[in-house]
């Protein structure tokens, strides 16, 4: 198992290098010229050339890439050509907000998806089952920014139940930074008021992001549970006198979780990308809005760094998913 983790972590390195190289080349192909953007409309060609040299973008792409990788390995993500701030510091400040949002969304998607999927399987062809199916299709079909606005209209504007935007009410002091997640930090520091408020604030954006995931996970869970309940070992369990509730939980459910857990790994990527739009709607101070800014400003350093960080988190999440598989199924563990 340890060997597996180490190998997977090592494998992540070439993958991230590849990702970085692709982003590098694509940014080079893109039209925006950061030097021109920084110099402004009235700059002379000489001024632009000088900025180019400062940024190091007058050299061949490969040389630039090499220099960049060397810096990154030393923990230096460079300086934003746009804001002149260290990109690393910007990301450190904004990434936790996005990760908190994404993981809470994953949690909601997993719990509700697995719950609804299991119930739909147990009550196969019931009204509930059809309802889950219809809502699933709808959940997958609707654009997340549109859902976001609808949820805001309903819960914030109409019912006035949940806050409209941000991570905390304005004026409330953020909890001391331990993990970067307001929910965890407020709990760890005993700030119950901050915990309740962050929970209220994260609910709508997280729900928005997770809707598609709930649908996907519910569908996979449903079909897995249905299949498991038709296996011979379920028949054996029935014949041996297990009550229905034990047959379902834990026996059928653990078997059925393998496919939905795979989906959770894949969904993480989708969630990060929908966070970009959702953060904008809910004014969530995360990396999504930062990335959008960076792209508009042709801020290469920022785009590269965000890509790399998200790529790394994605890789880690998928290693975690494989470990979860191994925990669920001993046969998988033996193959690791």
């Amino acid at each position: 198992m340890l060997r597996f983790i180490i190998i997977r972590l090592l494998l992540l390195i070439p993958v991230l290098l590849g990702l970085l190289l692709m982003t590098f080349v694509l940014l080079g192909l893109a039209e925006g010229d950061p030097a021109a953007a920084i110099a402004g409309d009235n700059a002379t060609p000489e001024q632009i050339q000088r900025i180019r040299e400062e940024l190091g973008i007058d050299k061949p792409v490969i040389a630039q890439f090499g220099a960049y990788v060397v810096n990154v390995v030393q923990g230096d993500f460079g300086v934003s050509a746009y804001s002149n701030r260290a990109v690393g510091a910007d990301i450190a400040q904004r990434l936790p907000a996005t990760l908190e949002l994404t993981f809470v969304s994953l949690l909601i998607a997993a719990v509700l998806g697995i719950g609804f999927g299991t119930l739909a399987a147990l009550w196969r062809n019931s009204v509930f089952d059809y309802l889950v199916r219809i809502v699933s299709v709808a959940g997958l079909a609707m654009a997340s920014f549109w859902i976001a606005i609808m949820l805001q209209l309903l819960f914030s504007m109409q019912l006035d139940l949940l806050p409209l935007r941000g991570r905390l009410p304005s004026g409330m002091e953020a909890p001391a930074v331990l993990t970067g997640s307001y929910l965890l930090d407020s709990l760890l520091t005993g700030r119950i008021d901050a915990f309740v408020q962050s929970l209220r604030h994260i609910l709508l954006p997280a729900l928005t992001i997770s809707l598609g995931g709930i649908a996907t996970i519910a569908r996979f869970t449903r079909s897995a549970v249905v299949t498991t309940l038709q296996t011979e070992y379920t028949t054996y369990e029935e014949a041996a006198g297990f009550p229905r509730r034990r047959i379902v939980f834990p026996y059928a459910l653990r078997n059925s979780l393998v496919t939905p857990v795979t989906q959770i790994g894949l969904l993480f990527g989708a969630f990060i990308s929908s966070a970009v739009a959702v953060e904008a709607v809910f004014d969530w101070p995360g990396i999504g809005s930062y990335l959008v800014q960076a792209i508009f400003n042709s801020d290469f350093q920022a785009v590269l760094a965000v890509t790399l960080v998200i790529g790394a988190v994605y890789g880690l999440v998928n290693i975690a998913v494989d470990l979860a598989h191994a925990l669920l199924d001993r046969r998988v563990a033996e193959r690791l």
């Binding site: 011979e232 070992y233 054996y236 834990p250 026996y251 653990r254 669920l328 199924d329 001993r330």
Partner: peptide, 12 residues
């Protein structure tokens, strides 16, 4: 049961 291969839950 008939088939001992299929009659155990593989994850327990």
């Amino acid at each position: 049961p008939q088939d001992p291969y299929q009659s155990f839950n593989p994850t327990f």
